[in-house]
Computed example of a mutant assay.
Amino acid sequence: MGQTKRHTLGVLTNDHPGVLQRVAGLFGRRGYNIESITVGASEEEGVSRMTIVAVGEERIRDQIILQLGKLIDVIGVTALDDGPLLARELMLVRLEAAPGKRAEIIALAESFRCAVADVGPDTLIVQAVGDVAKNDALLRLFRPYGILELTRTGETAMSRSRGAQESCEDG
Rank of each mutant, 00 (worst) to 15 (best):
M1A: 11
M1D: 10
G2V: 04
H7V: 03
T8G: 08
V11T: 06
T13Y: 03
V19T: 10
V19P: 01
V19Q: 01
L20C: 09
Q21N: 14
A24N: 11
A24M: 10
G25R: 08
L26I: 04
L26F: 05
L26A: 05
F27E: 01
Y32I: 12
Y32N: 10
I34R: 01
S36L: 06
T38M: 12
V39S: 06
G40H: 09
A41Q: 14
E43P: 12
E45M: 15
E45L: 15
G46H: 04
G46I: 06
V47E: 11
S48C: 15
R49W: 05
T51H: 03
T51Q: 07
I52Q: 02
I52A: 03
V53Q: 11
A54S: 15
V55C: 15
R61E: 12
D62K: 11
D62V: 07
L66V: 14
Q67Y: 11
L68D: 02
K70S: 10
I72W: 07
V74M: 05
V74E: 06
V74T: 06
I75E: 06
I75A: 02
G76Q: 14
V77D: 01
T78Y: 12
T78Q: 15
A79L: 10
A79V: 09
L80V: 06
L80C: 02
D81Q: 07
D81T: 07
D81Y: 00
D81W: 01
D82F: 07
G83C: 10
P84Y: 01
P84N: 07
L86V: 13
R88F: 03
E89L: 02
E89K: 06
L90G: 03
L90E: 05
M91D: 00
M91G: 01
L92S: 03
E96Y: 10
P99C: 08
R102A: 04
A103E: 15
E104G: 04
I105H: 00
I106F: 00
I106D: 11
I106Q: 09
A107N: 11
E110L: 01
E110H: 10
F112G: 07
R113M: 12
C114F: 01
C114A: 13
A115Y: 11
V116Q: 08
A117D: 14
D118H: 13
D122S: 13
T123S: 14
T123P: 00
L124D: 03
L124A: 02
I125S: 05
V126S: 01
Q127M: 09
A128C: 12
V129H: 01
V132D: 14
K134Q: 11
K134N: 04
N135D: 03
N135P: 08
A137L: 09
L138R: 00
L139E: 05
Y145W: 04
L148N: 09
L150S: 05
T153A: 08
T153E: 06
G154K: 02
G154Y: 00
A157R: 00
A157W: 00
R160T: 10
R160I: 10
R162H: 13
G163M: 10
E166F: 12
E166Y: 12
E166V: 12
S167M: 09
C168N: 12
C168I: 13
G171R: 14
G171Q: 10
